Computed example of a mutant assay.
Amino acid sequence: MEINPSDYKILIVDDVMSNVLLLKVLLTNEKFQIATASNGKQALEQVAAEKPDLILLDVMMPDMDGFEVAQHLKKDPIAYDIPIIFLTALNSTADVVKGFQVGANDFISKPFNKEELIIRVTHQISLIAAKRIILAQTEELRKTIMGRDKLYSVIAHDLRSPMGSIKMVLNMLILNLPTTTIGEEMYELLTMANQTTEDVFALLDNLLKWTKSQIGKLKVVYQDMDMVEVVEGVIEIFSMVAGLKSIKVELTAPEKMAVHADIDMIKTVVRNLLSNAIKFSNKGTEVQVTVEEKDGMAMVSVQDYGCGIDEENQKKLLHTDTHFSTFGTNNEEGSGLGLLLCKDFVQKNGGELGFTSVKGEGSTFYFTIPLKK
């Protein structure tokens, strides 16, 4: 990595003026900016005034030696990160250990070699330059992510409300306009529009929740709830969507199963899994939903007998770095976001999400949630 020495300032601290002058000449020739101090107290004042990038610090000085100066600097939040190279005639193991204990980044023995001095100084400056690049890139990335998340949130929030209204209107039209009234073709178009609207609304809802979760604005609100009641409510909501594909949703569950979790998050998980099962099921088939206790946890399974997932694509599921989506049996579009959201929500509630699938035979997605204690 190339550096521009003139962008960096080095503070030379030594009580022997001839050493200061020699170091100043050597480093000025390398195009570094130079500041100087002749004792410990002056060094601390110069650090505050000049804000150097590197300090060459003599150890043996009257009143306040280099070790004491380093200790003061490391207690100062502003000067804490400034690297220090000690200049010293001391070369015992104890002195070297003490130097590193008080914050030394390197040592140069007196009398010093010109080439060694330049190499050690340049090495420290290169580390500073690399750190600044990393910090700048990290800040740029942070701003980019914040901008992206804000954009996602605004898009999802602003579109969700009008899309919800359209969804309700289309639902009402399908329920109140039978094929005998509007004809087969018009009813089919209305059904397609309704399905598309349902999918877009679900995507916007997932996008909004995913964004809030990723930026830490979606908190888990634990409460006691009946898992069976929650699942039954979601199945009821999807009864019309399933009916449009002549799919029967069967529930196997005990009368009640008390769990301790965030009810909104769990509803979102069940809704996504059931929606996917219907989406990837063939017409006239069945989706089986099971609620049971297993190993001290409540387990909800959603099994379909649809197209299934091949082994290669199974590896891509539930991973943010291998984003995967596919089309349903009626060419319903998927974003791949729903399962990632499910995994996130289940883990936030102390459970796990998993699946099994066989290409051409169907899939089973399941999740666990801690039972109420």
Rank of each mutant, 00 (worst) to 15 (best):
I166L: 12
I84Y: 05
T181I: 13
D106R: 02
I119D: 12
I134G: 10
K150F: 13
N91Y: 04
H123F: 11
N171Y: 04
R120T: 06
Q101F: 01
I155D: 10
G103Q: 09
K75N: 13
K131F: 07
I134Y: 14
E185K: 15
G164R: 02
S161M: 03
K75G: 06
I174R: 11
D95W: 00
I134E: 15
Y80F: 14
I166Y: 02
Q124N: 11
N113A: 08
T88R: 07
A156F: 05
I174M: 09
R120D: 10
A156P: 08
K98C: 01
L135K: 06
L90I: 03
R160D: 08
T180R: 00
L87H: 08
N171V: 04
I166N: 02
T179Q: 11
E116R: 11
M146G: 11
L177I: 06
I82C: 05
L141T: 07
G99D: 06
Y152S: 07
L73I: 04
L173W: 00
R148K: 09
L87D: 11
L170R: 00
L159K: 12
Q124A: 09
D158Y: 03
E115C: 07
T191G: 12
E188N: 10
I155W: 04
A193V: 01
D158Q: 14
L73S: 03
E139K: 09
T181M: 09
G147L: 07
I108H: 01
L117W: 05
G183S: 09
N105F: 07
D95L: 00
I82D: 07
M163E: 05
M146V: 12
F86G: 04
N113T: 08
S153Y: 12
A79F: 09
H123I: 12
I133R: 10
N194Q: 09
N171P: 02
G147F: 02
L73K: 00
F100E: 07
E188S: 10
M163Y: 06
L190Y: 01
M186Q: 15
M172K: 04
A79I: 03
N113G: 13
Q124F: 00
G183H: 10
L177H: 05
R132I: 01
I128R: 05
S126I: 07
E140W: 09
I85L: 08
P83S: 01
F112P: 08
Q195N: 15
I108K: 03
S165F: 04
F100W: 06
G103H: 08
I82R: 04
L73Y: 02
D95A: 02
M192E: 15
I78R: 13
N194C: 05
E184K: 09
L151N: 13
I133N: 14
L151R: 08
N194D: 04
